[in-house]
Design a protein around this nucleic acid. Structure first.
Lengths: 64, 64
DNA sequence: TATATTTGTAAAACAAACTTTACATCAAAT
DNA sequence: ATTTGATGTAAAGTTTGTTTTACAAATATA
């Protein structure tokens, strides 16, 4: 499962800490997701989508 | 987090066991998700979406 | 260059997702 | 009515997601 969080953050000029804050998780969680250590929960994926006004599939992609 | 799995299953005439099988989880997991006991992981949500050819948001909805 | 901010990482602990086994209930059924 | 298939549920266990604390490394900025 790949994701575009780092790029989306850059486009919105946000730090990992700010994204964590806006989505209600810790900065380490954002970092771990960006680094591919694990996938977010579905509710957290929805919060990313809502924040960036994108579909979940526009942020996360199955890497077959 | 609400979901339309039960309806989608009905539309596709599938049992919980069949859906479990096609998405690689146990029947109890399908049952628990349908009954709202917990949300699926993001990868599992993707598998549902792929199977039913729907966006994740067409299957799962934030209940505000 | 020194200092501040951001990012990477790690360990311990807890929470949520998921499995296995097992049994009970419900609805066709015919 | 009893069997058969589907669903509901529960307990114990494993794995994955997440937090907290803490520190090191990288990047920006003064």
């Amino acid at each position: 499962m790949k994701n575009r969080l780092k790029v989306l953050r850059a486009e919105h000029d946000m730090t990992q800490a700010q994204l964590a804050d806006e989505t209600g998780v810790s900065r380490q969680t954002i970092n771990a997701i960006e680094k591919g250590k694990f996938d977010p929960s579905l509710p957290l994926a929805f919060r990313f989508a809502k924040l960036f006004k994108l579909k979940i599939e526009e942020i996360f992609q199955d890497e077959e």
